[in-house]
Amino acid sequence: MGMTNTTSDFILLGLFEHTAAHLLLFVMVLTIAFSSLVGNVLMLLLIHWDPRLHTPMYFFLSQLSLMDVLLGATIVPKMSADYLTGKKSISPVGCGLQIFVSLTLGGGESFLLAAMCYDRYVAVCHPLKYHILMSWPLCQRMTLGSWLLGAADGLMQAAVTLSFPYCSAHEMDHFFCEAPTLVHLACADTSVFENVMYICCVLMLLVPLSLILTSYGLILSSVLQMRSGEARKAFATCSSHLCVVGLFYGAALFIYVRPKSYRLANHDKVVSAFYTVFTPALNPLIYSLRNSKVKGALKRWLGKCAALSHG
C-alpha cells in the first residue's frame, strides 16, 4: 500500500448514516449536547455568582463543568458540521488538536475527581480540620496539577501519534480523532508506542481510581461508626460524586484500558459518544438534583432575575 506524509487530511466516517432513524438519533445527540452546554454553563455561573458556593467542593465542581464545556466544544461542532455538510475531512492539525484537548480534559478530569474525593474524605472523616486540610492554596495546586498532568499526556500522545507515516487510506471509523483509532492507520510498527500509551492510560486512570476507592473505603468505615442521622447526611454528600465517578471511569476504562484484541469500532464509537456527550450532560443534573445548596442558589438567582425583570 502506498505511503503518504502526515500532511494529508484524515476522513472521519462519523457516528451516523444518512437515514431517517439516524437523523432522529443525530437530533437527539445534538439536543443532549446543547443541554449539556446549558447545564454546565449554568453551574459555572451559579458557583461564581453565589458566595455560599465559594467552597473547595464547588470550586472543583466548577472546574469539572469547565472541562465538560470545553470537551463538548471540541467534539460536537465538528461532528455536527461533518454530518450536515457531508465534508468529513479533518486536517492533521485539527486531528492533533482534538487528541490533545480530549486527552487533556479526560486526564485532567480523572485527577480532578480524585481531588473531589479527597475533599469529601476530609469533610466526612476530619470535619474539624476541614479548613486546614482543604486550604485554598492546596485546592488551587490540586486543580492546576490536574490540568497539567492531563495536558502532558495529551501533548505526548498527539505529537507521537501524528509523527507516524500514514497509509493512503486515511479513513477513520469514528466521529472525532482519538489516538487508539488513529494509530491503527499508521504504516509503521507502532507496537512500542501502543504499549507505552496503554501504560500511560492505565496510570492516568487507575492511580486516581485507586485513591478514590481508598478514600471511599475510609469514608464508609467512618460513616458506619456514626449515628444513623449523621451517617445518612454524610453519605448523601458523597453519593453524587460516586455516580459521576462510575460514569466517567466506566467509559474511560472501556476505551483506553481494554485490550485491543477486544476492540470493535462500533462499540468504541458508542462509548466515546457516551463520555463526550451524555456524561457531561448528566453531571450538572446529578449535582443539582441531589444538592440542596445548588438548588437553593438556582432559586435565588431565578428570584433575582424575576425581580429585575419586573423592576
Rank of each mutant, 00 (worst) to 15 (best):
251 A>K: 01
74 T>V: 11
45 L>H: 01
239 S>W: 05
212 I>M: 09
98 Q>K: 11
233 K>F: 10
275 Y>D: 03
227 R>H: 15
207 V>L: 15
116 M>D: 05
146 S>M: 10
126 H>K: 09
289 L>A: 13
175 F>N: 07
266 N>C: 03
305 C>G: 00
11 I>P: 01
2 G>E: 12
100 F>P: 10
216 Y>I: 08
126 H>N: 09
48 H>F: 04
45 L>W: 00
283 N>H: 11
126 H>F: 03
88 K>I: 12
207 V>D: 07
25 L>G: 01
263 R>M: 02
163 S>W: 04
237 T>A: 13
198 Y>H: 13
77 P>F: 08
95 C>M: 10
224 L>P: 00
301 W>T: 06
215 S>C: 15
279 T>G: 01
241 H>A: 11
140 Q>P: 01
31 T>D: 09
34 F>R: 03
51 P>Y: 00
199 I>L: 13
140 Q>K: 12
35 S>R: 04
228 S>F: 08
10 F>N: 07
104 T>W: 07
250 G>Y: 00
211 L>R: 04
241 H>K: 03
171 E>Y: 07
95 C>E: 06
148 L>E: 03
197 M>H: 13
113 L>I: 12
227 R>S: 15
236 A>Y: 03
190 T>S: 15
258 R>H: 00
137 P>G: 08
167 C>R: 12
230 E>S: 15
22 H>T: 13
211 L>C: 13
67 M>Y: 10
239 S>Y: 07
39 G>H: 10
268 D>A: 01
111 F>H: 10
144 L>Q: 05
258 R>E: 00
289 L>Y: 07
10 F>D: 11
15 L>A: 06
96 G>H: 07
73 A>D: 09
72 G>L: 11
297 A>M: 02
235 F>L: 15
